[in-house]
Every structure is written in structure tokens, then in C-alpha cells.
Amino acid sequence: MKKYIFITVIIFITLTSWVLIEEVYFIVPENWPQPVYDFKQNKLTKEKIELGRILFYDPILSKNNKISCASCHSSFGAFAHVDHALSHGIYDSIGTRNVPGLMNLAWQPAFRWDGGIDNLDEFSIMPLTHPKEMGEQMNSIVSKLNQSAFYKSLFFQSYQDSVISKEKLLKSLSQFLLTLVSYNAKYDSVMRKQASFTKQESNGYQIFKANCNVCHQEPLFTNFSFQNNGLPMDSTLNDYGRFLVTQNTVDSFLFKVPTLRNIEYTFPYMHDGRFKKLSEVIKHYNSGIISYSTLSSSLQKKISLTTNDKIDLIAFLMTLSDRTFVFNPDFQFPKQLLTN
């Protein structure tokens, strides 16, 4: 009898705490900097995050209603496009740059490889409208959504207004994108003192700190700067990187430093996806850098790693793989779309 009373009390406490405690949708992990995204002007709610997820997976956003954001940003590839050197958009068209993984976007001050867009809410316009990505016009997307009873109802639940606007569409997409926070890799467990590196990983970490950490700064594994990392220019692309945004020659061949988190899943590598394997990336930094007037100051001094160092460094980079992130069911295809 006592057991049943006990259980009833526990169930009661559980249910009341469920109702009383407000759900938090965004957590700044321990020892991380504050995000740059202004959450005040787009307060996260359960309904809006879910709406953003549905939009992210719905091909209705593309011109031919066949591809979605998720076609190129697969959750299982940490939202990059595995095995595609360059972006692969509508009508099988091929773009000019590699699809980056999507994670920890609330901390990111600028978007695209050249940093051409500095606001997440405006960023989504580019892939939606680019003729080689989703190829649709914003007005046309808004009108397609406004003709859908499914979306009118979802927007009403989120905004208490069933009229769908461009702003609401973009902010809803941002809501979902902001929840893509990856902070549960083995590296994070080690930093939280819940796990420890193997000898090899530990050596790899020392090599990382000595050679890579200036640009790929912990804990986000990027300092969000733009750098020329000494890659020979690909004459099929003639990509001048950040110069295309600033028109300033000091920015020639500079690209945004990408995060190294989940790098195991986001192959191929570099802004043009030229390297299929991490060993090729490390080989480049060790012996492939070519001289430029705009070469990153951090790469002026030659990096010399032994064969074992290279293997250990890769072992460390593998500790940045966050399986709870790539397998998070909250980030996967929403079942509501099947019945829509």
C-alpha cells in the first residue's frame, strides 16, 4: 500500500513540475561564449521551432517542389552534403562551393564561405532563391504557403495569425536552425571531466593546440575569421572568396574558417570540396601550402608533422564527432509532412 502512495506522490510531483517549469529551447553550453544571435527579436517557441523544421524538410520551398533544404543539408552528415564537392541543387545543377554543415549557428556572426550575409534571418533567402540551389522566388514561396491549409493552420498556431509573410517564414526557419547545437562530442565529455582522451587522442590534442587552434579556436573550433589557407586556385572555379564581397584585394582568396566539429561526417573538405579525406587536408597544411601575398599569418611558419603526428591529429579530430547531434530525432524528418 505504501508503495502505491509513494508512486502516486511521485507522479503528482512529476506532472506539476511538467506544467510549472517553462521549457527552455536554447542552452548555452558550459564555458561557451554568449551567442551573437538576438533571441529577443525572435523568441524561440515549441510551435515555431517545429514549423521551422517542417519548412526545412518541405520541397514546397523549391521552384519545382522537388528539393528541400534537407536535400543538401542531411542531418546524418551534420547537415552538410556528404560526397558532394560542390553544392548540388535544383535540376541537378552544380554550384561553385561546398555545402557547409549547419551547427552552432547562433554563435556565427557571418554566413556563406565569403561572409556575404551577416544575419541568419536573411541568410535563408540566398539558398531559396539561388538559381542553382532551390531556384524559387520569395513571393512565389509565400503565395504557395498561403494557399496551403496545412501551413495556414501551422502559422496560426505559431503566430496567432494565419497570413504567412516572408518575415515569418524566414524567422521560423531560423528558429529550427538555432536549435542545431552540437556540444556532446567526446571532446566535450573530456572537457566536462566525464571522460578522458586515449594517449593517441591526447597527443593529437597537443598537436592541434600547437598548430590549428589559432583559427579553429575552442570551444566552437572556429574564430569566425576569414583566412587564405594557401590552396592553389582551382581554375575551373576562379573563386576569389571574400574579395567578391568586399572588392578589397587584401581579401583575395580568403574564406571563412569553418568549425571542425563533426568533421568526420562533413566530407569532402575545403570551400570547394577538393579533399575527400582528412589525411589529404592534413597533408595540405603540412606540405601543400602555396605562397600568396594574402596567405594567413598563422600559416607563414611551416607546419612539420611526422606520420604518427598526422594519425594522432586525426584521432583527436574524431573526438569532435557528436553522434547525439547527427542522430537527434528532433532534427530529423518531421512525420507531419507525410500526412500533409
Binding site: 508503495k3 508512486i7 511521485i10 507522479i11 510531483i13 512529476t14 513540475s17 511538467w18 517549469i21 521549457e23 527552455v24 542552452i27
Partner: peptide, 19 residues
């Protein structure tokens, strides 16, 4: 971890042990 998941976890443990 948020309170919702902790309480859910506690509830699940209870239900499991009573089976």
C-alpha cells in the same frame, strides 16, 4: 538537462522497477 527530462526519467525508472 532540463527538469522536464529529469522528471520524465524519474517516472520511467519508477514504472520500470514496479514491473
Amino acid at each position: 538537462m532540463n527538469f522536464k527530462s529529469i522528471s520524465f526519467f524519474a517516472l520511467s525508472i519508477l514504472l520500470l522497477t514496479s514491473m
